[in-house]
Design a protein around this nucleic acid. Structure first.
Lengths: 125, 125
DNA sequence: TTTTTGTGTATATACAGTATATACAGTTAA
DNA sequence: TTAACTGTATATACTGTATATACACAAAAA
């Protein structure tokens, strides 16, 4: 499944999993109707507890990204593309807003921020 | 002391206090040598436990923003202005970096991000 | 049909982070 | 010396995150 987790991170493991799966759904690497790896197989892969993978899938379900059928599996849901894009736009805006707040207190200019944006956007990730 | 805390936030109270005092130090509203409110008076003001204010002050001490003398008080330390600025620049860069990563996955253009930056920087905060 | 294997679910448990009240100990000024 | 102020330490509780293990249902293999 190509998910990378860090145990030393302060972000909970289930959150890391959630975010990475979300990214794959948004970028269409995972398509509606596809089945996710079972909580067991993913747990084995990542060498963590099934409870933790379940926790991640539960979160995705609550946000409408997947649907779970007991004893069968967890599947990518049909979620409105426009709504997802709006959510992501909101996230980006919140991050920039926080950055701007810090910048203003520390007298970091808009030009400095713009050049950071230019450089970071160029890099391939 | 003009600190605002939110109990409903997912950010711990001691963190909220820490960050707001840091901002006041960085913006020079609080100057080297000045005494912070005592952990008790601040706790009373904010209607929280002294342990929580102590926790906040401890964090500030570990990062070198303040110095505490038992039975006397906690004072703003002399911290190198350039180092603080570097730390803040690093924070801003990390936020923009995260924003860019999300943007790329969701096909949000650099132009869209630039206009967010323009608008958010204009607003007075 | 029965068994086996693969799903997700529920329970009991542990540990770390955050927060509390309350008792303790040193400093300073009345 | 006493009173009023500092920060410190202890015992306790609640919540979030994570674990192992037992349970229950579905589907394919025997």
């Amino acid at each position: 499944m190509n998910i990378i987790i860090s145990n030393s991170s302060n972000i909970p493991i289930y959150e890391q999993i959630k975010e990475q799966i979300k990214s794959k759904i948004i970028s269409n690497e995972l398509k509606a109707g596809e089945m996710l790896p079972s909580i067991r197989s993913l747990a084995k892969d990542l060498r963590i507890s099934v409870i933790t993978t379940k926790n991640a899938y539960e979160g995705l379900e609550q946000e409408g990204y997947v649907e779970t059928i007991a004893a069968k599996g967890t599947y990518i849901a049909n979620k409105n593309v426009e709504i997802i894009r709006e959510e992501q736009l909101q996230k980006v805006e919140n991050l920039i807003d926080t950055a701007v707040s810090i910048a203003k207190i520390s007298k970091i200019s808009k030009e400095e921020m713009q050049s950071m944006l230019d450089i970071l956007y160029m890099e391939d990730k």
